[in-house]
């Protein structure tokens, strides 16, 4: 069993890297230009949430870690590791909720996308703005982001969810 487990895990690493690389490219090249009232979708957070929703907490934390590092690469001003820490916790929490509370429910994934987007955007925004010296204007922007990111993420999820399923090899019949 250990051999089988190691084999599966080794096969999974390239898939996770492919997923996060693909998402980062999509974010940098496309989604970061879709600005609504100065707010863009948090694509790397979204891929963490979707991976956790599709596969559970184990893969959720791994994708969250890789996506957090990718966030730091795409935004050189961001403190290194903060997004990774936050996304790891997000992937695990969403995966656990999915495993125990909502397995198989049709619309729940979108509810979880919205809730997790709000919470993570607020926490991440407060951490970053506090680190740089929070001003009333920056705090207001965190609030605006928390309101808009979930909506934008839901639209992006329509595109990203099939990609997550294909790259991670999720069985469509089982997953839906």
């Amino acid at each position: 069993m250990t051999g089988r487990f190691a084999e599966v895990r080794a096969a999974l690493v390239p898939r996770l890297l492919a997923l996060v690389t693909m998402t980062t490219i999509l974010h940098v090249a496309l989604f970061s230009h879709l600005r609504v009232f100065g707010v863009i979708p948090e694509t790397l957070l979204l891929v963490t949430v979707l991976a956790a929703l599709e596969t559970g907490p184990n893969i959720g934390v791994a994708v969250g870690f890789a996506a957090g590092l990718a966030y730091a690469v795409s935004d050189l001003d961001a403190p290194l590791g903060v997004a990774a820490l936050l996304f790891v916790l997000t992937g695990w929490t969403v995966g656990i909720i999915r495993d125990y509370a909502f397995a198989g429910a049709g619309r729940v994934p979108f509810a979880l996308v919205i809730i997790s987007s709000v919470i993570v955007t607020v926490v991440h925004g407060l951490l970053l703005t506090t680190a740089r010296g929070a001003t009333p204007a920056s705090l207001i922007h965190v609030g605006i982001s928390a309101a808009l990111v979930p909506i934008l993420n839901c639209f992006v999820a329509i595109v990203l969810r099939p990609i997550v399923r294909v790259v991670l090899g999720v069985n469509w019949n089982e997953a839906s």
């Binding site: 907490p57 870690f65 290194l80 590791g81 990774a84 790891v88 916790l89």
Partner: peptide
């Protein structure tokens, strides 16, 4: 298993936060 992987990745992330820059 997920708890142990959670601890592992949290630990690595926290280490990167401390020494990352």
């Amino acid at each position: 298993r997920s708890t142990s992987s959670l601890f592992f990745f949290v630990l690595v992330s926290a280490t990167i936060v401390v020494i990352g820059s």
